[in-house]
Structure formats: C-alpha cells, structure tokens
Design a protein around this nucleic acid. Structure first.
Length: 570
DNA sequence: AGGGTTTGCCAC
DNA sequence: AAACGTGGCAAACCCT
C-alpha cells in the first residue's frame, strides 16, 4: 500500500492512499502520530480479505516530495518509517537515465514538465537544516509547486508518472530497485544525521592539546605551530609564513632548492633541514584548521552526560546521491574525511558500543561481479583479494593492488603499463569491462552502473576539439567513465547494504542505530546488550545485498565488523 | 569588504 | 613512487 503525504508545516498534513484508484483525502492534525500508527498497525490493501498471510497488514510505502524536506520533522516527533518513494530522488535518477542530469528534480519541477509550465529551479538548501536543526516554529514552505496547486494531487500525479517511466525502461527491474534503495537511503540519511556520531569533546580537546598545545585565543596560532613557524623562518634565514604556498615557494628557491609546488610529496624529495619542519607544520596546521577547536564548536553538539561526562554528537547533513557516481556527499564539518588523529574522540556513550562494519576491497570485488570475470571472481571469493591476485600474477601483494587500482582509475604512468598487460591476459573480461567504459567516455558517450545510474555527458563536449587540449580532455573523460562503472556500482552495493541493514536491525531503544556512513563503511551506536544482535544483522545484510544484486556470484563481500568503545580501535 | 579562484590536504 | 577516480573544506590569493 502506498500513501501520499503532504505536510502543512505545522505538524499536521494530508494523506491519501494511492493503490488502484486514489482513496479519499484525509486531513490529519498530527502527522507524526498518523504515520506512527500506520507503521505500527500496518495498512491492509482496500478490499483485501482479512486475516494473516501475504495480504495481511504491512507498513505502507510513504510517497512524498522529498525525504529531506518531510522526514526530519517526523523523526524529531519520534515517527520512523520503514519504506518510502522519494519523488525528488527518483526524478533525479530518471532524468539522469535520460542524460538530463542538469535539469531540476524537485516535485514542482517534475509537475511543471508534465504540464508544460515553466520549470522552477531546485531550492538551494542552507546548511544544517536536517534533523539536527532546531525545529522551526513555522517551517518555511519549500514547495516548488505554483501557489494554489493541490499539492496532494500533484504529488500523486508525478508519482504515477514516475512509476510509468520506470516501468517503461529497458532495465526496468534494476532501476526500480535503484529508486527504492535511493529512497531508503534518504530515510537513513535523515535518521543518522539526527542521531549523530557520538564524539567526546573532552577527548577531542585532549588530542588537540597533545599535538598542538593548549587552546589559543581565537585567531592565534597554537604554541606548537607558532614554534614551528619560528624555526622554519630561522632555517630559511628570513621570515616565512608557512601557511602561504607562495612564500614557501620563494623560500625554497632562496635556499637553493627550487620546487614547482609546495605539495608534501614534492618537498619530501628535498634534503634540507627546513623540510621536516615544513611537513610537520603542514600536518598539524591542517588538523588545527580542519578539525580543531573551531570545528568542534561549529559541528559538534554537546550535552551533559552522567557523572559530569561531556557527550557530543557530530551531525553532518548527508546529501544522498550528491556525487555523480551515486556516492553520498555531506554538507558541514567534512564528514567524509574525519582524520585518523581525532578518531580517538569518537566514543560510545557509557554502557553503549560502536559497531563498525567496513567492506574491504569493495571496488575490485564489484568489478569482479559486474564483469563476470571468472578468474577475478575466484580471487574475490577470498578474504584477501589482493593476496590471491599476487599468487596469480606472480608478484607481491602491493604490485597486484597497484595493477587493480590502475585498471580502475586509468593510471598509465609509473610501472603500471607492464602490470596492466599481465592483468589483461589474466583477467580479460574485467579489463575489457573498464576498457570499454573508457572508450565510450573518450568518444563522449555515457555509461551506466550495474543498476542503471547514468554518467553525465561531458560538459561542453566538442568531439572535434582539436589539438592536445582536446585529447587531454577526452582522455580525462575516459578515465572518468572507466571509474564510474566501478565506483557507481560499488556505491549501489553500499546503498543496498545500508537499506538492508536498516530494515534488518532489531528493535532498538531511542537514539540507537546507524549513526555514520561513508562509502563502504557504516557505524552503529547501540547499548552493549544489543551488540551481538546488531553484528548478526550486519552479516545478514551483507548476504541479502549480495544475492539481491548479483544472485549466486562466487564473489564475496567480507565485512570486517568490530565492536568497540572507540572509533580508532580496530 | 566581499566574492570567486587556486592551492593543498584529508577521506574513500 | 607518482600524480590516477570521487568528493569537502580552509586559507591564501586575486580581483572588483
């Protein structure tokens, strides 16, 4: 049963059952309560026989304009849903399949296209408006529908149209699955942003103080950085601001070691006493500016815990499908790059644990599965794919790894070339899979992931762009499509895994569940007594994901699952 | 002063 | 070792 939902922005809304002929419009004063009840009791298809069995009550699939808009208020009000159809996310997938990635994908835009009306731009979303935000007294109406439009009717109409468009696709089943898991991702994103990654402010401060010295007044360098800066100037023989690449460049020339950039790998090749100082400064200064005290204040919400303990939550906004490859992007706090140095501060609450599941070597495993290469699949049946590959290639593990990454990223320099020749001989189908994608990209064409997510057409593509610049651009796009078929399919694996895990979790207390997700890794925060059940749910999610996506493939997707107090323990 | 671009580093 | 895919972000830089 599908139920369309429109919120009124004041806690109430309108709902309407959609299956078959649309049911009556129902006005509800408390939307969260209505949702909660339908989830708990399930919804029986109208006209179905009563009694248990397959036609018995199930939670509905909620149809809404955008989970990002509608769901945070529900989650705040304590109502979680199990399934939805997210019109905005689905529209983006459908437009992408049609190579129309740049067109607006809101409900209003989809409705306008149906009615040959001017298509509104997608609303620009300010930071921190997700579940983590304080509830606004009166939520601004974010509808992109023209004023006066019957929003519920428009929603039903676009939903029906999207289902027809999905059903008409040649890869129908896959795209329908993709739309469903993308929508589920929208739910998970809102939920985990609302709960947040537990992070202890006192431990974070401890880490920073150890490395940088005590917290300085705003705008000043911490003691360790100030000291390093002074020693750098001393070593050079004149004043240098190590934060300024231009000044460092001039300083290196001044001391007789000219470099073409101040990147650390380039500095590392220079033998001069200033180099280790510069490298240390860069490392620590990066930590200070990206994840220092200012970061903590801006992105981590703090509340008192038991026994005077300071508990914090890092609550980034996740942008589902925010990357062309279908990976998630994030807004705020750089959630995709929590540096190793501060992971010590990510701690479970007292009596709780972090359950962390990490899919190792995901991309080569996905390549083995999608290409159907028997030899690579045999290696991918093992726990350590690269070690197995090294046996087959007749080299060490590190070289085998470079060979695989070269094939997936399109690297040609260094010692990749002879390695690739070996790979082509041993894993012909896998290599042909990515080589073919690269050829399509070099020709300006599009490629699709396993489930049908589509690469965007190259910007300002001119097949006849002459000269080396045109050639360089065509090659670059070839590397992009080469990588796309792997990265986008890997993102689908992760998305299906997340959706399966979300569904398969045991009943957990308030605040427990998935709290973090990044590409091929998921972190859950649960009371200790739920750890075993949670670990089992993770394992079951992996099995479900593999069979859902790849049937009876020999490829395995081993998840290393750990139960710890701290994110830095492995 | 303020906005856009460049540089360089972090993560997967 | 070298610069190869996807991103976010902060500070410096450059221009208006």
């Amino acid at each position: 049963m599908r139920i369309a939902v429109v919120a009124d922005g004041e806690g109430g809304g309108w709902i309407q059952e959609l299956d078959g002929s649309p049911g009556p419009v129902r006005r509800v004063a408390d939307l969260a309560d209505a949702v909660r009840r339908a989830e708990a009791e399930g919804v029986r298809p109208r006209g179905a026989a009563s009694g248990p069995g397959p036609s018995g009550p199930r939670p509905p699939r909620w149809v809404w304009s955008s989970g990002e808009d509608v769901y945070p208020d529900l989650v705040r009000a304590g109502a979680r849903v199990s399934r939805c159809h997210d019109v905005a996310l689905t529209e983006a997938l459908l437009l992408g399949h049609d190579v129309r990635h740049a067109e607006p994908h809101s409900l209003g835009a989809a409705w306008a296209r149906l009615h040959d009306r001017p298509v509104p731009e997608d609303p620009v979303r300010p930071l921190g408006e997700g579940t983590a935000a304080q509830p606004a007294l009166f939520e601004a109406d974010r509808s992109t529908l023209p004023p006066g439009t019957d929003r519920l009717a428009a929603l039903g109409e676009v939903h029906d149209d999207q289902r027809r468009r999905l059903a008409a696709l040649p890869d129908r089943e896959r795209m329908e699955l993709l739309a469903a898991v993308e929508s589920a991702g929208g739910l998970a994103a809102v939920e985990m942003s609302g709960d947040g990654l537990p992070l202890r402010p006192d431990v974070h401060d401890e880490v920073l103080t150890e490395l940088l010295g005590p917290r300085p007044p705003a705008g000043q360098r911490p003691a360790v950085l100030a000291d390093l800066a002074a020693r750098i100037s001393d070593a050079v023989g004149r004043d240098v601001n190590p934060d300024s690449p231009a000044q460092v460049l001039r300083a290196m020339a001044w001391i007789g070691h000219p470099v073409s950039s101040t990147r650390s790998w380039e500095l590392e090749r220079v033998d001069h006493p200033v180099v280790p100082l510069l490298l240390r400064y860069k490392e620590l200064s990066r930590l200070h500016s990206a994840n220092g005290w200012a970061w903590l204040e801006t992105w981590v919400r703090e509340r008192p815990g038991p026994d005077g303990l300071r508990l914090g939550r890092f609550q980034p906004d996740y942008v589902v499908g925010g990357v062309v490859s279908g990976r998630w992007a994030t807004r705020g706090g750089g959630a995709l790059q929590i540096p190793r140095a501060i992971r010590r501060a990510v701690r479970a609450d007292p009596g709780w644990v972090l359950v962390r599941a990490d899919a190792g070597q995901l991309e080569p495993r996905v390549l083995a599965a999608v290409s159907g290469d028997a030899a690579l699949a045999a290696a991918a049946a093992e726990d350590d794919l690269y070690a197995r590959l090294a046996d087959q290639v007749g080299g060490d593990r590190e070289r085998a790894k470079i060979g695989v990454l070269s094939a997936m990223y399109g690297q040609t320099s260094g010692d990749a070339a002879p390695l690739l020749a070996t790979m082509r001989r041993l894993y012909p189908r896998a290599l042909e899979y990515v080589d073919a994608a690269a050829r399509v990209g070099e020709g300006g064409g599009i490629v699709r992931s396993w489930l049908g997510r589509t690469s965007p057409a190259p910007a300002d593509w001119q097949a006849r762009t002459a000269g080396s610049e045109g050639e360089r651009r065509r090659r670059a796009h070839g590397r992009f499509t080469r990588n796309f078929v792997v990265q986008a399919s890997a993102a689908e694996w992760a998305l299906v895994m997340l959706a399966a895990l979300r569904q398969g979790l045991p009943e957990l207390p308030e605040g427990a569940g998935i709290v973090f997700f990044v590409h091929d890794e998921v972190v859950l925060h649960v009371p200790r007594e739920y750890a075993d059940e949670t670990v089992r749910a993770v394992a079951e999610a992996e099995t479900r994901t593999r069979t859902t996506l790849f049937g009876d493939t020999p490829v395995r997707f081993p998840l290393s699952t750990t139960v710890t107090d701290s994110y830095d323990e492995r």
